[in-house]
């Protein structure tokens, strides 16, 4: 490229072919074909499945509204909600100091290194897997679910909170530091005002997410609606499954509505 342009040289085309991009696209297509064949995902199975789907759906409708089932579902659903509330509360409380400790601009290396590593471990396992371990440690029941979701909350809220803190304006902090404010007062009057709105946003988002997952930890014995759901599924009581699904989706949508409100109050 360093050679001077010869007089007769052609100009480069206005839209040069982007060979790396083309190769990447081709690779993606080849991978898709390969992976589909490896996984034995065939059109025949897919079409056969569509037949099953009709059968499946017909067994689902109408949803089962028997009072004894509804009572069972109510108990499970309330427990799921409680798991989500407790896990969010405790998890967020722990995430606040953890997130500050994991922020490069506030904490010394000796603090933020371990904090980051701890957060990374919290993040790497799906809540259901963490629930398996807690069921073994503290026994079947809601407590295992709560503990599993606390871990998930720390993995998400503390990580993103640390990033928010790292993005804040350092000049505002410097100015408050210059007033001779001790560290805690700097946090309260210079750091928190900049990051609290985002923290509340993360919290309500995580509550929604915890609610979704609290319906799942029951599959491995972590309490909540998951156990009745899985039992009904294994007994082919698909009409009960549908009732539970409708209630879960309704509750989650309701919570998203409420959390939108909360976010507006704290912005």
């Amino acid at each position: 490229m360093s050679a001077p342009a010869a007089p007769g040289r052609l100009r480069p085309p206005a839209f040069p072919a982007n060979w790396p991009a083309r190769l990447a696209w081709a690779g993606l297509v080849i991978y898709t074909i390969y992976a589909t064949s490896v996984l034995d995902v065939t059109l025949a199975r897919f079409i056969a499945g569509l037949g099953n789907a009709g059968h499946f759906l017909s067994r689902m409708f109408p949803p089962n509204m028997a009072p004894d089932k509804l009572a069972l579902i109510y108990t499970g659903m309330v427990e799921s909600l409680q798991i989500a509330v407790l896990a969010t509360f405790a998890g967020v409380l722990l995430s606040l100091p953890l997130g500050l400790a994991a922020a490069r601009n506030l904490a010394p290396v000796a603090v933020y290194g371990p904090a980051r590593a701890f957060i990374a471990i919290c993040r790497s396992f799906h809540p259901v897997i963490v629930a398996i371990l807690f069921v073994k440690a503290v026994g079947f029941g809601a407590l295992a679910g709560v503990l599993a979701l606390i871990v998930a909350t720390m993995g998400f809220v503390a990580k993103l909170f640390a990033e928010v803190v790292e993005e804040m304006n350092p000049k505002q902090v410097e100015a408050v530091r210059a007033t001779a404010a001790p560290f805690l007062n700097v946090l309260i009057m210079a750091v928190f005002p900049q990051v609290m709105a985002r923290f509340v946003g993360l919290t309500v988002y995580q509550f929604d997410s915890n609610l979704r997952n609290s319906t799942m930890v029951g599959i491995v014995g972590g309490g909540g609606i998951g156990a009745p759901l899985f039992t009904a599924y294994q007994r082919f009581d698909y009409d009960v499954v549908l009732t539970i699904l409708i209630i879960i989706v309704a509750l989650i949508m309701l919570c998203e509505l409420v959390s939108g409100r909360v976010r507006r109050i704290f912005q």
């Binding site: 505002q172 100015a175 210059a178 005002p193």
Partner: peptide, 27 residues
């Protein structure tokens, strides 16, 4: 005992005027 005034003011943007002034008492 040393106050400081900055080029870009460096107020805490999301706080009110009086909160920023009261910040001077944080020590």
């Amino acid at each position: 005992r040393i106050g400081m005034v900055f080029q870009e003011y460096n107020l805490v943007e999301r706080l009110s005027v009086i909160e920023n002034v009261l910040s001077g008492r944080l020590g």
